[in-house]
């Protein structure tokens, strides 16, 4: 009887440990909603989401976050536009074409790229990319959306490569054999058969890249200039993430609450992306 009670207690402890994750998600969601809603209520939802001017420190403060939302969308789209083709082609090469040794070397390079801390990306971007953009395009300052797009494109490469590689490698060999037997060359087979068969996995890779790009803060903060403009390719811009980070240390009152509201908007974006990602991953698993 005693040992039965003991087992029950152990079971309970493990149940609690299992529920910690759920608790954390609830805690984060509840805290963000509770601290994000008051400012939105005070500013007004349309003024907040669609206001084009963010002047949190002026005597007549305005809290419109459309510049941040648009910048985050443009920046992410740009990073995807550059990062996805490069990552996709690399993953097809690694998964299908590359000799074993080449594959091992490139794969470890990709892993290294994934492990580099974002501040290091920011540092290199700040001292290489930003001056280069300044000189090439003859600008007063190279800190711009353009620089951020490049840094983000490089940062999302490893996730895109590794996820689409896994999907491509899981394509049944019979599909490829059938295509080869019908007279298609290997390259045609990879791009027209394997890629099509792995499409939900590749879609998941793209969505994962979107999530990474939209959530990145530090690297972007170091290269994007941080002025609350509507997005301009060669202008200084502020992302949703950097909007939260750049004013947090000195803000108070409504300004601080507005920053929490920005975080809530970012969180909603991320939840949407996560749901999309799960949809594609599920389809990939079912295949």
């Amino acid at each position: 009887m005693k040992s039965k009670n003991f087992e029950r207690i152990v079971h309970g402890i493990f149940l609690i440990l299992g529920l910690v994750t759920v608790g954390c998600v609830l805690l984060i969601t509840v805290y963000l909603i509770i601290s994000g809603i008051p400012a939105i209520k005070q500013i007004g939802l349309t003024n907040f989401l669609f206001g084009k001017v963010w002047e949190s420190t002026s005597s007549n403060p305005q809290y419109g976050i459309l510049p941040f939302i648009m910048t985050s969308i443009y920046g992410t789209a740009g990073a995807i536009l550059i990062g996805v083709p490069v990552g996709f082609m690399t993953s097809v090469y690694l998964a299908k074409v590359a000799p074993k040794k080449v594959k091992a070397v490139v794969e470890s390079a990709v892993k290294l790229l994934a492990g580099i801390p974002s501040v290091v990306y920011g540092l290199v971007g700040m001292l290489v990319l930003v001056p280069a953009i300044k000189n090439i395009f003859n600008l007063p300052d190279g800190s711009s959306l353009f620089a951020a797009i490049f840094v983000l494109a490089i940062m999302i490469l490893p996730s895109i490569i590794s996820v689409s590689m896994t999907a491509l490698e899981a394509v049944p060999k019979e599909y490829e054999d059938a295509s080869l037997a019908l007279g298609a060359t290997p390259i045609e087979t990879y791009f027209k058969v394997s890629v099509r068969a792995a499409k939900s996995g590749i879609a998941a890779a793209v969505v994962l890249g979107v999530g990474r790009a939209i959530g990145e803060a530090m690297a972007v903060m170091m290269v994007a200039g941080n002025v609350a403009n509507m997005p301009k390719l060669f202008g200084s811009v502020r992302f949703l993430t950097t909007a939260v980070a750049s004013e947090m240390s000195y803000s108070s009152g409504l300004q601080k609450q507005a920053l929490f509201s920005i975080a809530l908007v970012l969180f909603l974006f991320i939840m949407l992306i996560n749901a999309t990602l799960n949809f594609f991953l599920k389809r990939e698993k079912e295949r």
Binding site: T21, L32, G215, A217, T241, V244, F267, N278
Partner: peptide, 18 residues
């Protein structure tokens, strides 16, 4: 629980910081 874990790994670090 698994969905919660996936959600946690998708949340950007700046939100964790906040």
């Amino acid at each position: 629980i698994e969905y919660a874990a996936e959600t946690l790994s998708g949340i950007p670090s700046i939100i964790y910081g906040l």
